[in-house]
Write a protein that binds this DNA or RNA. Structure first.
Lengths: 144, 144
DNA sequence: TCGATTTCAGTCGTACACGACATAAAACAT
DNA sequence: ATGTTTTATGTCGTGTACGACTGAAATCGA
């Protein structure tokens, strides 16, 4: 038995599990809004700055466009965004919030704090904040 | 613009991204073996202890059985495991390594260290190890 | 002991995630 | 100016993830 092959020694397994569990914890908050976690991330980006091309959204999320495109198509079908052809560069598709998409910001504004309150029962905010710089270095180093 | 709705303020987005990037970094190492990251996790579990029921594997990975079952079926098709009916409890399916599955441990034993070497270019081992306890608390708290 | 409940594994439907590839438009080079 | 290259988006196929549900077997309770 190789020590380095034990599941319990692997950081990546923790990241993989923690990531899924937090997404799961968001679930009940997203359900009434009819969105998923990745869709929520797209909305966060568009609430910061409306009318962005597919590529900018994909880069911000470190996702491929062939992941983001279907995601945006589903969001368009749900009436959260529209995808209009770019005027300067006609290859681009500019993603715009609909009124429903804009209105959802109000409904979502308390979600992060509610989730925080839930998580903080088990780990302190300071402890959680302390791991952010390490994760950022990891992401920056691996984004290639 | 609500401060708490900024993407850059969200820990969960880091976890989600870091998790995907590490899985991506494993990719080149798994390709010659013909396995995926979740399949690798199943192998880790079986290399620790062969012949486990589907449920034990699922619980160890914090996954649902309806995720693990198809995963195991694919691994069976690839000749890495067999799934035999339990003798004491006939509802169970015991997952056993094949010779090919056992042999793969030798080929995989250096992967964690190789990946470590790659990651450590950007973040120190100590810094990475330091975030493990916080992730464990988070996981333990959210596993419900 | 025998009907109700729980457990184990599985199917089905939907939504990511990504590699390989396709297509059209913009940018570049000569 | 025009042929080549790059870029932006998209389709397709495969493999997770998970909620809702199913069927069979084990367990529990009166």
């Amino acid at each position: 038995m190789y020590e380095q092959l034990k599941l319990d020694n692997q950081l990546c397994f923790r990241l993989y599990t923690a990531s899924r569990m937090i997404a799961g914890a968001y679930g009940p908050y997203f359900e009434p809004l009819g969105i998923t976690y990745p869709q929520y991330l797209v909305l966060l980006i568009l609430w910061e700055k409306d009318q962005q091309p597919v590529n900018d959204i994909a880069k911000r999320l470190y996702l491929e466009t062939n992941t983001v495109t279907p995601l945006l198509q589903r969001m368009e079908r749900q009436g959260l965004v529209t995808r209009v052809k770019g005027e300067v560069d006609t290859r681009q598709r500019i993603v715009c919030l609909t009124e429903a998409g804009k209105a959802m910001e109000e409904q979502a504004k308390d979600i992060p704090d509610q989730l925080s309150a839930e998580v903080v029962k088990h780990v302190s905010v300071d402890e959680l904040k302390s791991i952010i710089p390490s994760l950022d270095k990891l992401i920056e180093g691996l984004k290639d």
